[in-house]
Amino acid sequence: MTNIGFGIDVGGSGIKGARVDLDTGEFVGDRIKILTPKPATPTAVAETIKEILTQAEWDGPVGITLPSVVRDQKALTAANIDPSWIDCDLRALMSEHLGAEREVSVLNDADAAGLAEARFGNPKAREGAVILLTLGTGIGSAYLIDGTLVPNTEFGHMVIDGKEAEHFASSAAKEREDLSYSKWAKRVSKVLNEYERLFWPSLFIVGGGISRKSEKWVPKLSVETPVVPAELRNRAGIVGAAMAVDQHLHP
């Protein structure tokens, strides 16, 4: 078993890492989780990542997801992490804390999930234009063309009927307003119909914790494009991160 990578998924509440079998998408050994430091500054998060790598006894390349738009290995936004991440030079940060010789790839968390789902999830995710949406606190997105990632889409911020999509159709909005699955599905349908009109995808993949209950709401959606739940669930970020550095992706 030689095709092993390592991925780390930085979230608002926890930072998780694991060895990944890059041929199967399965974890090798246990996942390590450490609570996200507060405040979640670049230095504090980088030191937590270093601790995970130390615990795992991993000194090879590492892929890292961030809840951020990442361009030219610079963080341009910060969602559920400290605002000091904005304009952070990720190469310099990780080089300082993880070692200058180690290859590190940092990418958006939804983009990482999209890579993983396209490789190890539904086979149709590698055909044509596919949109993956993570429905949680907001709406994260990944856009794939024949399995190739178009990085840093922010479809959840698209304005629909005067509101950002994630403000009324995220799973957080469902909880906040105590919506039934039927009422919430109408909102999600409105968002997906707009994405259909603009991008004409061949498939929607829906992830996030609420995808575990997909049978309660996916059949209620009124969209032409097929909608399927994500298959990797909470493995996707770590797996996609490990794939990114293995493929030398540095968005």
Rank of each mutant, 00 (worst) to 15 (best):
A129D: 08
G25F: 11
A79C: 07
F204I: 01
G60C: 10
L22I: 02
A230D: 01
R212N: 15
N193A: 04
I81A: 11
L179A: 07
E164P: 12
G63I: 02
D89T: 00
I86K: 13
Q247R: 15
K186I: 01
V106E: 00
V70N: 07
L192C: 07
L133M: 13
I210Y: 08
A46E: 08
E196F: 04
I8L: 14
R233G: 12
V227F: 09
D246E: 13
A75I: 07
I210F: 03
L192Y: 14
G136N: 08
A185N: 07
I210D: 10
E101S: 13
S211Q: 13
P42A: 00
I32F: 13
T2D: 05
L203F: 15
S141K: 04
G60Y: 09
I8V: 15
N3G: 04
S202T: 15
V106N: 11
G140N: 06
V45L: 05
L179N: 01
T134N: 06
F168N: 05
N80S: 11
I205Q: 14
A100C: 03
P219G: 10
H157M: 03
K16R: 15
V106K: 12
I52A: 01
I160Q: 06
G207S: 01
V191L: 09
N80F: 01
H167L: 10
E127V: 12
D59Y: 02
L66Y: 05
D82E: 13
A92I: 00
Y181S: 12
G162W: 00
S211R: 09
G99P: 06
E164Q: 12
G156T: 00
D178Q: 15
V104K: 03
E224D: 12
P219Y: 08
S141Y: 09
L221V: 13
A56G: 09
H250V: 07
E164W: 05
R212M: 12
G63P: 01
G7I: 12
N108K: 02
F199K: 01
I160D: 06
F6Q: 03
R19N: 06
L198R: 08
Y195P: 05
K163R: 15
A78H: 10
N122D: 15
D82T: 13
V223W: 05
G60F: 11
A242C: 02
F199Q: 03
K124M: 13
M243V: 00
I205V: 15
R233W: 15
V130I: 03
S105A: 14
L22G: 04
D21L: 11
Y143G: 08
V20S: 00
N122Q: 06
K124G: 00
K220Q: 15
E154T: 06
T54H: 07
T137G: 03
P83N: 07
E215P: 04
L149P: 14
G5M: 08
A129K: 11
D161I: 09
H167I: 06
A100H: 11
K50F: 12
E47I: 10
R235T: 06
E101C: 01
G209Y: 02
K124C: 00
H97R: 03
N108L: 02
A173C: 08
P219Q: 04
V227S: 05
D161V: 04
